[in-house]
Every structure is written in C-alpha cells, then in structure tokens.
C-alpha cells in the first residue's frame, strides 16, 4: 500500500484514504469553442503516461477532501513530493525519492 503525504493535513497516511485523480497540470482551454479537434483530443485523452517521475493529482477523499498534486516515480511507486494545488510544478532535479 502506498503511503501518501497530504500537504493540507500535513500527515502521511495510507493510500486507502486517497483517490487518484489522473495527470496533473493539464489546463482546460480558455476558449473551448475555438480549439481544433486535435487540441480537444489532446486535452481530453492524450496523457504523458510517464515511465519514471509522473506529475499527478490525488484527492484526500476520506480526510480533508481536497485535491493536491504529487510527483511519483511510476517504476518504483515511491513519491518524490506532494504539494498543494495551484503551487508551481517542482523541478525534477530538486527532488529525491522519499524526499518529503
């Protein structure tokens, strides 16, 4: 089971309290009517599916209920960091596994 640090509760808790919410930092187009089919496809369906560090969203669904972001290595399943929604994307070279 993954242990996940909620940046709002400031506690490291078991995965069962959290819901995965897909890749992070995907921006909805400001003007949906103006974008092409390809841009819609990319927004809706195309994902990085990174093998290695992956920026992703989690929700502390059985806790504070808030969404936050995380960087997790998808090969080892270890978290590099978690951070509040809206905070800038951390640079990978500043992170180490279990760095939180």
């Amino acid at each position: 089971m993954l242990l996940i640090h909620c940046p709002y509760c400031d506690e490291t808790l078991p995965e069962a309290e959290f819901a995965y919410a897909g890749e992070a930092h995907i921006l909805r187009p400001d003007n949906p009517a103006d974008v092409s089919e390809e841009e819609w496809r990319d927004f809706l369906f195309i994902r990085t599916n990174a093998k290695g560090p992956h920026y992703e969203r989690w929700r502390h669904i059985h806790g504070c209920g808030r969404f936050f972001n995380a960087v997790r290595n998808t090969v080892t399943d270890r978290f590099l960091t978690t951070y509040k929604a809206g905070e800038p994307r951390p640079e990978l070279d500043t992170l180490t596994e279990d760095g939180q």
């Binding site: 089971m1 993954l2 995965e15 819901a19 992703e56 997790r72 998808t74 090969v75 399943d77």
Partner: peptide, 13 residues
C-alpha cells in the same frame, strides 16, 4: 490499481 504504474506489482488492498 487506481494509479498508473509500471511496477508489475500492484497494491495489496
């Protein structure tokens, strides 16, 4: 599992 992964392991829950 609920999260993407290449670990070929998966979680016990």
């Amino acid at each position: 599992d609920q999260y993407t992964s290449y670990s070929q392991r998966g979680g016990l829950p």
